[in-house]
Amino acid sequence: MSIFFYCLAYAAVIAFVAIAAMRIMGYLKKPQHLRWELYPVAHESAERVEYGGSYLEKVDWWKDKYHSSIVGALKGFLEEALFLKATWEHNRPLWWRTYPFHVGLYLLLGGMGMTVLAAFGKMAGFEGFVIFCTCVTVFCNVVGFGGVLFGAVGLIQRRLCDAGLRKYTSNEHFFNLGLFGVYALLGLVLCLGYSAWDFALMGNAFIYGMLTFTAMDVAPLYALYLLIGFFMFFWVPYSFLGHLFMKYFTWHDIRWGDEPFISSNKLQNQLANNLNLPVSWRASHIKGDGVKTWAQIATEKQD
């Protein structure tokens, strides 16, 4: 039984990495898209970010080197990731529910990271480090479960009671929120049942077992908790919850993607390829036959 659990655990980790990689690669493999930026663009100069300006505000802008501030981009991204700034500004009632939910998830992820570190510490024989990691895990688990449970219940309530939101809430939303809610509830019950410290040690032992390929017995309730966790490893990257990592592209590559053609050879090559793609749109002003290229269609003489 415990071997089976460990196999599932490996499968869950592999599924997460594989599905996330597939989605990211799927995005990166797409042809270079048109510029579709929205201002403010966070990697502009601080002064321009303040009011939403761009390098296009300068005469002969192409004579300057294209500049993209990593610090600015990071600041813009962290503000959104850590504080859910857009939701705070534009959907406050939701923020009070979704913020604890997201912070709870971040903490649980952090707790998981600490559990992995503790397992490495144990392998290396650093007892003090293991204790430190376990202390952090206890904090992350308790606050994380609390946040996720509060957020999940709050979001379900909001989706049920807000008439506008209700129409847009599908079975999948309830399923997702229910899943996270049950997971967090089980986590809290286990923390109460075994003590938060012992619960963290169970996590340490499980991950240690995974890293050293030594299966250990798993209590039934803990097994259920793990099963839900494994499923989420597969489900998060598969479903719309994948925005967890795809948001990097929607913000960084699309919303802030202002790099001009003139400054990048790579862009120039990609765009040259695009113009050679075949078109098959059927309308009479295009008459794409799947052979004629964009370049040909865009330059052919009109009837």
């Binding site: 797409k30 898209h33 939101l165 719309f240 948001k247």
Partner: peptide, 18 residues
């Protein structure tokens, strides 16, 4: 090719938060 990247992400990741 012009808009596929934006279209795909818009199709897949909306949270329906309104």
């Amino acid at each position: 090719w012009t808009c596929l990247a934006m279209l795909d992400t818009t199709m897949d990741y909306c949270a329906q938060c309104n």
